[in-house]
Design a protein around this nucleic acid. Structure first.
Lengths: 125, 125, 125, 125
DNA sequence: GTGGTCTAGACCACT
DNA sequence: GTGGTCTAGACCACG
């Protein structure tokens, strides 16, 4: 379910963070669902469990999962996540990227189409 | 014109890349305009010229500036920039961020307003 | 009467210790009063009796309850509790926390108000 | 400057966090001052640098230090620290401890004396 | 079996 | 030289 590219230069733990976050955002992993144990995922991806754990700890800090010692890691319920600062940061990032796209000749229409595609399933959740 | 924050955790050379790129995108620095020499910028920002050099090499690689040996570094003309891969990457990044914003409860309208703000000056350039 | 939050990261047995200790301190559970059996509390909180057992052993070690084999667990009388080391430890903890509060800008007045609130019912007990 | 007790049961990295935090709170380490590198402190305390780093990362999360890659770790300026949630948590902890002290027979006067001792140097900073 | 901590040792990126 | 990442392997606490 998660693809790791060790040659990409992106830290492995970060790829795992992005991968799991993506599964949560796409609603493949749902609230209170158990995610693989550090050892299990380590075996599957042939990655050291410590690296997985670093990823899981980061996900916990960001509010996407919670840990129950002795039982495993679970997806947080969205409603419990604190937003605020996080949203502001994301918006700043989005603005920077869209400004660059604009500079490179992508016009408003194309960007709006992108947005529409992302929000297309809005009713369906 | 460029603000460096050593405490941010972002590598200094990368902050310089982003800073200059931003000036180019915002059209403060125009095509074929000369940008400061590595030594000059190093003095101004009290940063090691090697770090500036690294940033300039990265900007050149990304197609934002070109170097004339013995004369200095200059802003590329937009038309000369290769798009393709770069645009695709940026779009991927944008999609990921907007998906996350959507997950965090930001609705379509708010994102569209953002886009409109960025593209507001489109005619005027 | 005791709230367990498995997501908090605090071991469950420790939450039970704190919960019961709190009921004793707040005088909800009084000296020589019987507390629920490990099985009974386990059923109520849907927690493994072994975990409750561990909590009770810890409470007994700390002097808050005593066990009569075959009869159950009972709240100790305050006068029977050994102080000394325990009090010293608690004071050390309190000092550390208040020093940190001071560093974070909380002034003496605010801390004193806190104390007053806690000791407000002193006469009435 | 920091005493580590490997037999205490308290994780080493946590003892380091507490130790450094204490030096900062007591103003022994001042704003923007460099703290020992992970390797240096590791050598001094004969502890693995990875463990030191874990402690430093935690201190960074808590806002007590900041890291400049390639240069080292530095004490944050107090004014830059965000408070809010942290203060509330500390107050909750303080209340619990003082309630327990009260139960164990420590009277209001003794606790107030403690506060006065902690705040005695207030003018001197 | 689960996560949490720790060590030893290695390699890389940043300045 | 500094921090950042990663591995391999070990031991402990929790439930």
């Amino acid at each position: 379910m998660i693809n790791i590219d060790v040659k990409s230069g992106v830290p492995i733990y970060e790829q795992i963070v992005e991968g799991i976050k993506n599964l949560i955002i796409k609603n493949v992993l749902k609230g209170d669902e158990k995610i693989p144990s550090v050892r299990e995922l380590g075996r599957k991806l042939t990655i050291n469990p410590n690296t997985i754990q670093k990823a899981y700890r980061e996900l916990e800090y960001q509010g996407y999962i919670y840990t129950v010692i002795g039982r495993g890691n679970f997806v947080s319920n969205q409603s419990e996540k604190p937003n605020g600062k996080k949203v502001t940061e994301l918006i700043d990032q989005a603005v920077k990227i869209i400004e660059e796209l604009r500079y490179l000749g992508i016009d408003k229409r194309e960007v709006e189409d992108l947005i529409s595609e992302i929000y297309v399933n809005e009713a369906g959740e």
